[in-house]
Amino acid sequence: MPGLEDLYREIILDHYRNPRNRGELPVPPAHAETGFNPLCGDEITVYVQVDGDTVTDLRLTGQGCSISQSSASMMSTAVKGRSLEEARAVIRTFKAMMSVHEARLDGDDGGPVEPEVALGDLEALQGVVKFPVRIKCATLSWNTLTQALDSIAAPAS
C-alpha cells in the first residue's frame, strides 16, 4: 500500500509552500483560461503570453490542494520560455505519466511510454498515480493550459 511519502515528496511541498509564477498577466495580450475540479472545488486560472512561437510568460492564480498547486507551479517553470511545440511535448509527456493508472483500467498495459522530453522535477509527481483520486488534482492546471493553447491556436471567431 502506498504511503504518504510517495505522494508528498519534498520538491512537491517546496513548490506548494513557495509557488513559482503566481500572479496575473494583462489580458490581452496574454490569454487567460480557468479550469475547475468539480470533485473538490479547486479552481485555477492560467495566464499565457505567447509571442511568435514562444511561451514567453505564464502566470497562475487560484486555490487548491498541495498537489494541484505544486503541479501548477512546476508546470509553469517547465513550460515558460519553451517553444509551443516543446510546451505541447511537455504536456503530452506529463499526461502520459499521469494516465498510467487509467490505461491499466482499460486493460491496456501498453508497456512503458517512451518520454518525449525529460520531465525533471515533475517526475516527483509520479507518486500521485498511486492515489487515483488525486490524479485530477495534478492534471487540473495542465488541462487548463492545453485549453489556453488551443484557444490561442484557434481563436474564437
Binding site: C40, C65, S66
Partner: peptide, 11 residues
C-alpha cells in the same frame, strides 16, 4: 487544504 488533510487522516 481539506484534500491534503483528508489524505493524511486516511493514514
Amino acid at each position: 487544504h481539506p484534500h491534503d488533510l483528508s489524505q493524511v487522516l486516511d493514514e
